[in-house]
Amino acid sequence: MSEVVITVGDRSIRTINQEIQAAVADGHAVCVKETLSRHNLGIGLPAGARVRFEGSVGYYCGGLNSGATIEIGRDAGWGTGEAMASGHITVNGYSGMSVGASMLGGTIHVKGDCGPRCGVAMKGGDIIVEGKLGYQSGFMAHAGRIIALGGAGTSCADALWEGQVWVLGDIESLGVDTQVVEPEPEEAASVEQLLAGYGLDDSAHDWRKVISSQRLWYFESRDANAWLMI
């Protein structure tokens, strides 16, 4: 697959995204240079697209991804991969707040730390964070897995639904309505199989799996203790 180089600089993001889409439609891989942390790069890319952003990107990079493979060379701003349906996004550095927000499927792989509310309201897919999860990560996640290899910050998995937060290392504090459970062997095997696909299988894993304790699911307003929990 030949590679087309596109330079962002001060040009309009609409033009850049049209050029990326055109190159992808013609069967090219794309390298995007001089990204300057600009917002909304690589939105709505289709299956089979291979797009690499050199440097850092701003908000919502790879949002609405529908099967593309996207690599971000350095850091990413807020909302990376927001509402993506499928495909794969790699962030080689830090990923800002709400990475994978409302994502439906696919995988996001963050090699550094991530900001607050990683995977907020996600509805499927996997987010792998080699570093530490930010504050309140997994907030109200409906489904899917967040897998952190470097611990988690405060209020981890706050108000979780059926999503799961898997953590190696310290969790500074759990969010409301959560519990840490022992994973089933086949669940752990599934997580470790996923990690192995990213070359992350070289350590003995002592997982802490955080799930909802479901007290807020069936909230009873006359339950004083439930109010205190909030």
Binding site: S56, P116, G134
Partner: peptide
């Protein structure tokens, strides 16, 4: 507030600090 604004005055790739936590 946004990194892309900072890059208006610091064009080269650089170490950016995100004060994202509470």
């Amino acid at each position: 507030t946004e990194e892309q604004a900072v890059r208006r005055v610091v064009r080269d790739e650089c170490h950016v600090i995100n004060y994202d936590g509470p």
